[in-house]
Design a protein around this nucleic acid. Structure first.
Length: 470
RNA sequence: GGCCCCAUCGUCUAGUGGCCUAGGACACUACCCUCUCAAGGUAGCGGCACGGGUUCGAAUCCCGUUGGGGCUGCCA
């Protein structure tokens, strides 16, 4: 038994990184850090039909994003399962030589037919004693022993399987290549894995793998099966129907800290009355024994709420830096030369409390950088629907010619006009806001007006007035 | 169908036989604050699936029912 625990994360490279995988990886990673163990990354790339080398880099990048750093001393790998194919086959052959596995020539159709006729399901062990040798189309099957298999699971306690309900499963395909069950076990054995922490969907595989560990002469690892993540229909999160790609959340401006914190509150919770907590506290407190047993709904709304909170927690400078990144990216709707970082910096505090994801800052400040911000028709109709709109805006326009150009004076000037017309500032600012920003809602108005300057503000107000007249 | 897992507010959870007239968070509602919208503050709504046991005492232990979910490939 090795002195330090060795955990592993073994994704198959399928093109994107699943949030469920991210959570499983996080569990393993945190446990490795907490127990001064090792996190082994193994890419299970044995399904040649859907195996693309660039996916591997995607996985490493996604792991890095959630804080699992491949340069950290606790990180080991990546290993590639495909490079160990010879070992997998050798292990299977050893099992055959020891009589623990046997060859079978039955096709799927034949197996199904016999099962149907017998009123049973699955493979019935037809070839167990036929003493077949290897050959084209012959699969190697594991001879499931009699008795029962008890899986000791850190999350679920002990789970008992009657071996008679487990069919003699395939180890080697008809073409001689190994399947997942044996490849996974052989790799775990050679990599000295001590703890297998994975999603609950693997629980039915576990008795089979445990039998393989034992048949191969090794003590099985500590198992832990964590509940799956589900959608609002309570079905396992699926690539087809659900938004599961970590990369997509990253692009939309979810902060990694928020994602990590949120993921860790699914099936588990830190002590105390607050869920937004430092990663260190999570690392200190997290225990597999405390993980819930039932599936958890991946609630994007709550994720967004966490993210908004993390955005507000950022320092002034950090927020500006993060915002600058999206404002100078392809997400920007203006031509790059019109962007003025110092203008945004002045606005930053006003937008920081108003966005839940970083991508939202674009629409929050676009009117400052767009030469001609589009005016939403519905917004215009709403703002100019009242009879005070045009007269007050005209007066505002006049007042803007002479008012001292700073946010506070501008506000006072507008407020004064409101008083004369007996219209509260809250209503009065509507038409002005639409004229300036094109929208009915947005950050506080007078600061950006100051930033925009007298001339441009006047121009926009006049344009709106013309539109209202026409 | 078979095997396995699960069951506290709509959702995520705290709770490990008395501290529970069940706590927090998201969402929702109302009010306060307020130049719109947010943020913030206050209050509110809302739950131990059901039925039997065990016990002086059960959300917590046992059994059953019901309801969910996972697996059931020569995918991983």
């Amino acid at each position: 038994m090795s002195a330090t625990p060795r955990y592993r994360f073994a994704p198959s490279p399928t093109g994107y990184f699943h949030v469920g995988g991210a959570r499983t990886a996080l569990y393993n990673w945190l446990l490795a850090l907490k127990n001064n163990g090792t996190f082994v990354l193994r890419i299970e790339d044995t399904d040649e039909s859907r195996n693309e080398p660039q996916w591997t880099q995607g996985i490493i990048d996604a792991l890095a994003w959630i804080g699992i750093d491949s340069n950290d001393p606790h990180f080991e790998g990546p290993y590639f399962q495909s490079t160990y194919a010879a070992e997998h086959v050798a292990a299977a052959h050893r099992l055959f030589e020891e009589g623990k596995a046997y060859y079978c020539d039955q096709t799927t159709e034949q197996i199904q037919e016999r099962a149907k006729a017998a009123g049973l399901n699955g493979y019935d062990g037809f070839s167990r004693d036929r003493k077949l040798g290897p050959g084209p189309g012959h699969v190697l099957r594991f001879r499931v022993p009699e008795g029962k298999t008890i899986v000791n699971d850190t999350v679920r306690g002990s789970v008992e399987f009657e071996n008679s309900t487990i069919e003699d499963f395939v180890l080697l395909r008809g073409n001689g290549t190994p399947v997942f069950l044996i490849a996974n076990v052989v790799d775990d054995i050679t990599m000295n894995i001590t703890h297998v922490v994975r999603a609950e969907e693997h629980l039915p595989n576990t008795p089979k793998q445990q039998m393989l560990w034992e048949a191969l002469g090794h003590t099985p690892p500590v198992w832990a099966h964590v509940p799956v993540l589900v959608n609002e229909q309570r079905k396992k999160l699926s690539k087809r129907r659900d938004k599961v790609a970590v990369e997509q959340y990253r692009e939309e401006g979810i902060l990694p800290e928020a994602m990590v914190n949120y993921l860790m509150t699914l099936g588990w919770a830190p002590s105390g009355d607050t869920e937004i907590v430092p990663l260190q506290k999570i690392q200190d407190e997290f225990r597999l024994e405390d993980v819930n047993h039932s599936p958890a709904f991946f609630d994007i709304k709550k994720l967004l709420s966490f993210n908004g909170e993390y955005i507000r927690l950022m320092s002034h400078d950090a927020f500006i830096a993060a915002a600058n990144e999206v404002l100078t990216s392809s997400a920007a709707t203006w031509s790059a030369d019109r962007y003025k970082p110092e203008v945004f910096a002045a606005m930053a505090p006003l937008v920081q409390t108003r966005v839940a994801v970083m991508s939202e800052v674009v629409a929050m400040v676009d009117f400052l950088f767009l030469a001609e911000p589009p005016i939403d028709d519905a917004a215009f109709a709403k703002a100019f629907g009242s009879d005070f709109a045009v007269p007050t805006l005209s007066e505002i326009s006049k007042a803007f010619e002479t008012v001292e150009w700073n946010a506070e004076s501008i506000k006072v000037a507008v407020e004064t006009i409101g008083n004369q017309h007996d219209v509260k500032l809250g209503k009065l600012q509507g038409p002005l806001r639409v004229a300036i920003t094109g929208r009915t809602v947005g950050p506080p108005l007078f600061e950006p007006i100051e930033l925009l300057g007298r001339v441009e503000s006047q121009r926009r107000i006049r344009a709106a007035l013309v539109r209202a007249a026409g």
